[in-house]
């Protein structure tokens, strides 16, 4: 069975490691993590991948949270009958059941993951424009009260980077070793079921119409 994973770039390294550990024979197709800076672009980017992959795969699995798409990603996936790993975003996937408790305890929590720390200067600092406009730091971070680093690999280098980031933001740091958390358990559950016929993807008549309308609209604008 040909199975493809369409995954957020922010989860690529972790998902590839999970797949290797479980011996899954899957192909990986990443979507640039920078798309989070304009979440309305995520669903169209994923849809483009689906249209390429569905004709040549038996199953496609999307590994993304809703990630601020406002349900637009799930609307696309419903049309193509493609499953997505459950969860609103990767912080919840890593932290699992304790995520809500952490947010109740302190809504002003700024989360870091291994991925965010590896690319902090480029993805976060530059992505927020703080390299060009350092005065915006207050605008972005005034309401945050702490940094929580959800550590996947437990790497000392990343822990010291987390300390440096927290210091740069002027916030206290808490490190929680989550490993892959619910990202792994939910993916394992999904892969146990994936052979079931109900997961067969399709390019429906509705998808073709919507896609045709979108291309006309983008052509007109």
């Amino acid at each position: 069975m040909r199975v493809a994973f369409v995954l957020c770039g922010a989860l690529a390294r972790e998902v590839i490691d999970i797949a290797r550990r479980h011996g899954w024979n899957v192909s990986f197709y990443g979507v640039d993590a920078q798309a989070h800076m304009r979440p309305e672009r995520i669903a169209p980017l994923v849809e483009r991948k689906l249209r390429e992959l569905i004709p040549r795969c038996d199953r496609v699995v999307v590994i993304y949270g809703d990630c601020g798409t406002g349900g637009a990603l799930d609307d696309v996936l419903r049309r193509y009958n493609v499953p997505r790993i459950a969860g609103p975003h990767c912080y919840e996937m890593y932290a699992g059941a304790v995520f809500d408790a952490m947010m109740d305890e302190e809504p002003g929590t700024f989360f870091l993951t291994d991925f965010l720390l590896q690319g902090f200067d480029g993805l976060v600092w530059k992505g927020l424009g703080l390299d060009r406009f350092p005065e915006l730091k207050e605008t972005y971070f005034a309401n945050y009260r702490r940094v929580v680093y959800l550590a996947q690999r437990g790497d000392d280098g990343l822990a010291s980077k987390a300390r440096a980031v927290a210091e740069r933001l002027g916030l206290p740091l808490e490190i929680r070793h989550t490993g892959y958390g619910a990202l792994e358990t939910r993916l394992v559950t999904l892969m146990d079921e994936i052979a079931d016929e109900r997961y067969r993807p399709r390019i429906s008549h509705e998808s073709l119409i919507i896609n045709h309308q979108s291309s006309i609209m983008s052509h007109e604008s």
Binding site: R38, F133, T139
Partner: peptide, 14 residues
Amino acid sequence: DGVLFVPEVLMAAN
């Protein structure tokens, strides 16, 4: 229209 991004909008807003 995608000409400006969030940081530029925030600078203008400030």
